[in-house]
Computed example of a mutant assay.
Amino acid sequence: MVEASNYQMAIDLLCCHLGISEEEAKQQLGITSEHASQAHVAEMQQAMLGLTNEK
C-alpha cells in the first residue's frame, strides 16, 4: 500500500478546492488506511458467506 504522505499535496488540493475532508480526498485518490482496507475485506467475506449459505 502506498503511503498517504506521498500524496499529501494532492490530498491538500482536493480538500481545499473541493471542500472535502481528508478522508474523502484519500478515497477519491484510491488511498485507504490499513483499517479501512481490513474492514472492506471483512465486509466482502461476510457477503460471500451470505451468498454460499442461501438455498
Rank of each mutant, 00 (worst) to 15 (best):
M1I: 08
M1F: 09
M1W: 09
V2L: 04
V2F: 09
V2W: 06
V2A: 02
A4P: 02
A4H: 06
A4M: 02
S5Q: 07
S5H: 13
S5P: 00
S5A: 07
S5I: 02
N6F: 12
N6G: 11
N6R: 15
N6E: 14
N6K: 14
Y7L: 04
Y7A: 03
Q8T: 04
Q8N: 11
M9T: 08
M9N: 15
M9V: 15
M9Y: 15
M9P: 06
A10N: 06
A10Q: 10
A10P: 00
I11H: 12
D12I: 12
D12S: 09
L13K: 13
L13T: 11
L14T: 00
L14V: 01
L14W: 01
L14E: 00
L14S: 00
L14R: 01
C15F: 02
C15V: 01
C16T: 09
C16S: 06
H17C: 15
H17G: 13
G19L: 06
G19Q: 06
G19F: 03
G19R: 06
G19Y: 05
I20E: 00
S21E: 02
S21H: 04
S21D: 01
E22K: 15
E22V: 04
E22N: 07
E23P: 03
E23I: 10
E23V: 05
E23D: 05
E24Y: 08
E24W: 03
E24P: 00
E24G: 07
A25P: 07
A25H: 05
K26Y: 03
K26A: 03
K26N: 03
Q28P: 10
Q28D: 10
Q28N: 13
Q28L: 15
Q28H: 13
L29A: 04
L29G: 00
L29W: 01
L29R: 03
L29D: 00
G30D: 05
G30C: 05
I31L: 05
I31T: 01
T32F: 11
T32V: 06
S33H: 02
S33G: 07
E34G: 03
H35S: 10
H35Y: 09
H35G: 14
A36N: 08
A36S: 11
A36K: 15
A36E: 14
A36D: 07
A36G: 09
S37D: 12
S37Q: 14
Q38A: 12
Q38L: 14
A39L: 10
A39V: 08
A39G: 08
A39F: 06
H40S: 08
H40N: 12
V41K: 14
V41L: 10
V41A: 15
A42T: 05
A42Y: 14
A42S: 14
A42C: 06
E43C: 15
M44I: 14
M44E: 07
Q45D: 08
Q45T: 11
Q45V: 07
Q46V: 12
Q46I: 11
Q46C: 15
A47H: 12
A47E: 10
A47D: 04
M48S: 08
L49A: 13
L49E: 13
L49H: 13
L49W: 09
L49Y: 09
G50Y: 04
L51I: 04
L51D: 12
T52Y: 14
T52S: 09
N53H: 14
N53P: 01
E54P: 00
E54I: 06
E54K: 07
K55V: 05
